[in-house]
Amino acid sequence: MSFSATAIPAATDADEPLVRIQSVHKHYGALHVLKGIDLDIRPGEKVSIIGPSGSGKTTLLRCVNYLERPTRGQIFINGELLGQKQGRRGFVELDDRSLARQRTGIGMVFQRFNLFPHLTVSQNVEIGPVKVLKVSRAEARERAIGLLGKVGLAEKRDAYPEMLSGGQQQRVAIARALAMQPTLMLFDEATSALDPELVGEVLNVMAQLAADGMTMMIVTHEMQFAEDVSDRVIFMDGGQIVEQGPPSRLFGAPEHPRTRGFLRAVLQKRTMP
């Protein structure tokens, strides 16, 4: 099964990154959360970001669709500067409409699902295409039913989110994001709020999406999943990228002592419940 034709990006210049993060800093008052992040992500690449809580990985992910504004530095999506434009005196904020247009190409899945509770499952998936892409209701409905089928929830289409389990809600949230036919999907600890027995169904959907060629940035605590689906794993700590590499190397032979310490701690927790 395949999620959408656009999941596989056009084979343009292989050297052109889909996401380019350039010396991004983020301050919250005195708190320095991101301390100069540089990161390129190629089309089709799956990148997992791991690290202790407070390391800045969620903030970095939220910067990539401009839910957080970097205090310094720039992010480019497909070569286009995100959220800002060059004014006469330095960079100025993009207007609401242009920012919204940029975000249509970037899907995001949240830890707490954030489904719209006043809409049915199907309406949750349809509302983006209808209100943003101006797709006809019939076509949006068709697209929603197709996507809900792919996440295994076609029969729940007329239910309200509250009637669903956490795992089902998160799968609807993935379908909602995919309905916009994004070229990049961001996952912000998509399984952290789930009961353990519901984690697998969400990871399966994410793995399928990865297999279809979607470009993915995944902030996660699921080390096995990161190892299985990622092309590259990034370890963040203290607002910086400490170490990155293919999963076999990062998990098998981490170089940095902080990476080793972190992996030891989380893997220990896994074997000793």
């Binding site: 669709n65 839910l67 919204a100 247009r101 975000r103 249509t104 970037i106 899907g107 995001m108 949240f110 954030n114 489904l115 719209f116 509302i127 983006g128 209100k131 943003v132 892409l133 949230a173 909602r176 994001a177 309905a179 916009m180």
Partner: peptide
């Protein structure tokens, strides 16, 4: 945030 993330 969810609404903004689908391009609204």
């Amino acid at each position: 945030e969810a609404a903004l993330s689908i391009g609204m």
